[in-house]
Amino acid sequence: MTSHNDDAVGASNNGILVIGEALIDIVVTADNSEPVEHVGGSPANVALALGRLGDRVSVLTAIADDDRGRRIADHLRASGVAMHPSSWSLDRTSTALARITADGSARYEFDVTWSLPSVPVVRDDIVHVGSIAAFVQPGADSVLTALQNTPEPTVISFDPNIRPALVGDRAAALAQVDAITALADIVKLSDEDAEWLYPGWGAEAVVDRLLETGARVVAVTMGGDGALIGSAHGKVTVPAPHVKVRDTVGAGDTFSAGLIDAVLHQPDLLQTPDADALTSLGRHAAAAAAITVQRPGADPPTREELDRALRAEGVRRCTTEGIGLFPY
Rank of each mutant, 00 (worst) to 15 (best):
D67S: 14
N161M: 08
D253P: 03
A182F: 07
A257F: 01
V218F: 00
S231Q: 01
D111K: 09
A78L: 04
S142Y: 09
C318V: 14
V127H: 01
T279Q: 11
A312F: 13
V59M: 15
D103S: 09
Q148A: 08
N161F: 03
A257P: 08
P35V: 07
S94Q: 03
G202K: 09
P138H: 08
H128T: 07
D25S: 12
I126F: 00
G15E: 15
T213Y: 08
N149T: 10
A182M: 09
A179Y: 00
S118Y: 06
L278Y: 00
A312P: 09
E305H: 10
I323S: 11
V122C: 08
S3N: 13
V122Q: 04
V121E: 15
H242V: 12
G202P: 04
V46A: 06
Q176Y: 04
G202W: 03
D247K: 04
T113R: 12
E313T: 14
G314A: 15
A171Q: 14
A287Q: 11
A8I: 14
G20C: 02
T254M: 02
R303P: 03
V81E: 08
F158W: 00
G41D: 07
K235D: 05
A49K: 05
R71L: 08
M1P: 14
D159E: 03
T93Q: 06
A287C: 12
L211Y: 03
P85V: 10
D91V: 14
A78H: 06
G202M: 02
P267I: 08
I16E: 07
G139L: 08
D169N: 14
K244G: 10
S131D: 08
L183H: 07
G200D: 03
P160L: 05
D208A: 15
S105Q: 15
V207N: 02
A106H: 09
D91F: 14
N13L: 15
G322N: 04
G51L: 05
G322D: 09
D25A: 11
F255C: 05
R77V: 10
P301H: 03
L306R: 01
A215C: 05
R163M: 04
T154C: 07
P164N: 04
D74H: 11
A182V: 01
